[in-house]
Design a protein around this nucleic acid. Structure first.
Length: 251
DNA sequence: CGTATCCTGACC
DNA sequence: GGTCAGGATACG
């Protein structure tokens, strides 16, 4: 996001091209054409969504889903193997939407239209605290983990961060969302802020260059919990894997 | 609530 | 050659 902002804010789009059928479907040539010669006024993040606001009020919306990332290149550089779309600026800067699985979203929105679904509060919002979270969870009788992944509760929490935050706050992922105590939520809020704000965790990278996992519970089934030495378990919730420590994450 | 769909690299 | 993972969406 910061890199994208630095690369294109204040500059003018020359062309936007899609290189993969799935992306072409989302951003047809006619829409891509409407982006030409538009100045990028600002780049905004809302949860996992990235909004590129253009001079005439139209918006280019991007969402990486799981694997996507921006690659910065210059005119003339070879296009990366997994680049699915390219934003070329008039000064020669090139930004590539790199996504091996091509599940990313890239869509055009005419001036005045809202590109976003209903989103909950941002984790870094000042007013995001235990009271606020309790309010959003009050009526939710689903498990806390899928509730956290609901973008309408807190924007930007995915499968991995939900599990990591619950581990930090020592909350059982199966606990009913509406019944999690205020005291636990008081721990959960800073845990979410810490996990989401961890700049050392680039998107789409689950392991360090040396191959060591960088998460406390995610993808660590059967391994020892770093806090209590319990054995990390894996369960399925809402069709997703949930990893947690049954010994120190009790409801 | 659950399940299928999209898509493809990585792993068996 | 088969299975899985992941986020969002659509649907039973």
């Amino acid at each position: 996001m910061q890199r994208l902002r630095a690369a294109i804010e204040g500059k003018t789009i020359a062309t936007v091209s899609t290189l993969h059928a799935a992306l072409k479907r989302q951003l047809p040539a006619a829409s891509a054409r409407r982006l030409r010669q538009q100045r990028v006024e600002r780049v905004e993040r809302r949860g996992k969504h990235q909004l590129i606001h253009l001079k005439n009020g139209s918006i280019l919306h991007a969402h990486f889903r799981m694997n996507g990332d921006w690659l910065m290149a210059a005119a003339g550089d070879p296009v990366h193997r997994f680049t699915r779309a390219v934003i070329a600026m008039t000064d020669g800067t090139r930004v590539e939407l790199n996504d091996s699985r091509a599940l990313s979203a890239l869509t055009f929105h005419a001036p005045g239209t809202n590109p976003l679904p209903k989103l909950g509060i941002e984790a870094n919002d000042e007013s995001f605290d235990a009271t606020q979270l309790r309010g959003s969870l009050k009526s939710r009788r689903i498990a806390i983990k899928p509730a956290l992944m609901d973008q309408g509760v807190v924007a930007g929490i995915g499968n991995i961060y939900a599990a990591e935050a619950l581990w930090r706050a020592q909350i059982n992922p199966r606990a009913v969302a509406s019944s999690v105590s205020k005291a636990r939520l008081e721990k959960l809020v800073p845990a979410i802020k810490a996990v989401i704000g961890d700049e050392n965790r680039p998107p789409g990278r689950y392991t360090d260059s040396d191959g060591r996992g960088r998460f406390e519970v995610y993808d660590r089934e059967g391994k020892a919990c770093s806090r209590c030495n319990g054995k990390i378990a894996r369960i399925a919730q809402a069709g997703r894997s949930t990893y947690y420590c049954p010994k120190c994450q009790r409801s």
